[in-house]
């Protein structure tokens, strides 16, 4: 990225970037003309925005019991999903590594991981809500899928970058396949696996406050309902709770990261 470049003539205007900016300009005009953005609504909205801000404050914490129980549910979803997701990813990641597994295993597993990654968690949540009903279970399943999509992919990539010489040496001692993984592969990638897991725990915490929007439990459902009832001072209270949760989560994951450094 920050490689030091030598410029033959640093002030020569680049044709490529000019074309790019021209393209962007043309696109902007095209998009704004064709899309139904509605400038009158934009102007109207600015006034509306002022009124909304008035109604957002002061935050209303009167219904703190609901808030607290939702917060706890979000936490439960994030924690359970992370633990399952991390454990599953460990195995799925190993199976997806092309340098350890034959194609017949690694290719289907990689397709599975790609499927887990492609859809936004909220879409996966919709499907699970239809399958297992409203509530925390759908949220947990959703975030397990999201965790596998993230950790297993990066873990498999990390395994593919290991030094195979160390693996060969362990194989030469007559170690079984499982022992070879334990002593030849895992020591090389374990700290990175921990790093991915901590990141995903943090990210699950954020998403656990979102999946509720489609009925998969946690703070999101109450937030969405409050919006629909124009209950804006309660909205602020929920938003502040979410932000606090995210900040605490970030601080904690930084702490854990330092411990495992």
């Amino acid at each position: 990225m920050a490689a030091i470049k030598t410029h033959a003539n640093p002030f020569k205007p680049s044709l490529g970037s000019r074309l790019l900016w021209l393209g962007v300009l043309v696109y902007l005009i095209y998009a704004v003309v064709t899309l139904d953005i509605g400038w009158d609504r934009f102007i109207l909205g600015l006034e509306q925005g002022g009124r909304l801000v008035d109604r957002l404050f002061p935050p209303n914490f009167n219904r703190w019991e609901i808030l607290l129980s939702d917060l706890i549910e979000s936490l439960q979803i994030a924690i359970i999903a992370s633990v399952f997701g991390i454990v599953i990813s460990l195995f799925v990641g190993l199976m997806a590594a092309r340098n350890l597994m034959p194609n017949i295993i690694s290719i289907p597993v990689r397709v599975f991981i790609a499927l887990c990654r492609t859809f936004h968690p909220v879409i996966i949540a919709i499907l699970f809500v239809k399958a297992v009903g409203f509530g925390a279970l759908a949220g947990i399943l959703t975030l397990i899928v999201a965790s596998v999509g993230f950790i297993a992919k990066l873990f498999a990539e990390a395994i593919e970058e290991i030094s195979f010489k160390q693996v060969e040496a362990i194989r030469a001692t007559g170690a079984s396949f499982a022992s070879t993984i334990l002593f030849g592969v895992l020591p090389q990638v374990f700290s990175r696996f921990i790093g991915f897991s901590i990141y995903q725990l943090d990210s699950n915490l954020r998403n656990s406050t979102m999946v509720g929007i489609v009925g998969a439990g946690g703070l999101g459902g109450t937030l969405f309902a409050a919006f629909q009832r124009f209950d804006y001072d309660f909205v602020t209270a929920i938003l502040l709770t979410i932000i606090a949760l995210i900040l605490v989560g970030e601080a904690l994951s930084n702490l854990v990261r330092r411990i495992f450094q």
Binding site: R41, L44, G45, L52, R206, G220, F224
Partner: peptide
């Protein structure tokens, strides 16, 4: 960064009404 785009969307739908504008 701390506010999820869905929350931003909820806020902008409340202000500008449903539609592409809120999404953008």
């Amino acid at each position: 960064r701390s506010v999820n785009s869905l929350i931003w969307a909820l806020l902008f739908v409340a202000i500008f009404g449903p539609g592409v504008l809120a999404g953008v």
